[in-house]
Design a binder for these strands. Structure first.
Lengths: 156, 156
DNA sequence: ACTGAAAACTGCAGGCC
DNA sequence: GGCCTGCAGTTTTCAGT
């Protein structure tokens, strides 16, 4: 599995992916090639899936976010619903959840008009979608792709 | 504001941040220095906030995710609650929401034990938290930091 | 995992449109 | 203002140890 040094690598890259190997190595107590090798190994093993830029949603015109809980009538309708999820860029997340509803979507769109279009026209027209419950996000206090790794201070 | 070329820059960097300027320039139809300049301008303007690695949560031992809806009794308790949110690595997201509840948290933790500890010991001990509602995520169909930019195919 | 050299990339300057 | 080319300095990669 991943060792302590790997966790520290991951921690660093989750905060700033565009760092130099030399700089990363300095933090890890390794030389630049050694730091690069550890990262490449983590990429190959699929532990680091990729890298992304964190973008201000409002700046690109997607200022409205919402959660949409979806109730599916029967299991045979899952396929079509999941295809919609994968093919719709506005759907940022889709989780199968425990509880009253079946799926929880997080969508990001241009405004209330756009949200209405997605909920009423797109989601509700999918066969098997019996009911939806939309919760609009008013403001965001925290939103980080950073996973909750405990700080790795010292490496023995 | 951002033009079409900026959107294409952002789109590319949301998918793979660790790209070379030359490669990015090729996609954009620009030279490497020009591509770099556009990115730096977007960073300065705060449209690109930073970069991060996308990490497999299970590989680093955080296999359980859950939504926690929080009801706050009075507005004066907000401060303390928001401090908890900012200082807790397990809290990945916190949104102020419209609807019955006040806040929606997304947390990621090691297991049910860990979740119990966060909900029962940490969140419910915050002054003003009247009630919480936890929804466990069973599986994740889609989870992307990629914002829903429409594909920019052609630049006039 | 480190060192050292070749190859590749970045950043800066000057000039063009 | 935004873009391109060329060069100097840095970073990455690939050996060998």
């Amino acid at each position: 599995m991943v060792d302590k040094l790997d966790l520290k690598v991951v921690e660093q890259l989750m905060e700033r992916a565009r760092t130099t190997w030399a700089e990363l190595g300095l933090i890890l107590g390794l030389s630049a090639p050694a730091a690069a090798e550890r990262v490449h190994k983590l990429e190959e093993r699929g532990i680091i899936r990729g890298y992304c830029a964190i973008v201000d949603p409002e700046a690109i015109g997607y200022g409205l976010a919402a959660y949409i809980a979806v109730y599916l009538e029967k299991p045979e309708h899952r396929q079509g619903f999941l295809e919609f999820v994968q093919n719709t860029r506005e759907v940022q997340e889709c989780h199968h959840i425990a509880g009253d509803e079946d799926y929880m979507l997080k969508v990001r769109c241009k405004g209330t008009r756009d949200l209405e279009r997605i909920v009423s026209e797109k989601i509700k027209s999918i066969p098997g979608v019996a009911k939806t419950r939309t919760t609009v996000i008013l403001s965001t206090e925290k939103e980080t792709p950073i996973l909750p790794i405990e700080r790795v201070e010292e490496i023995k």
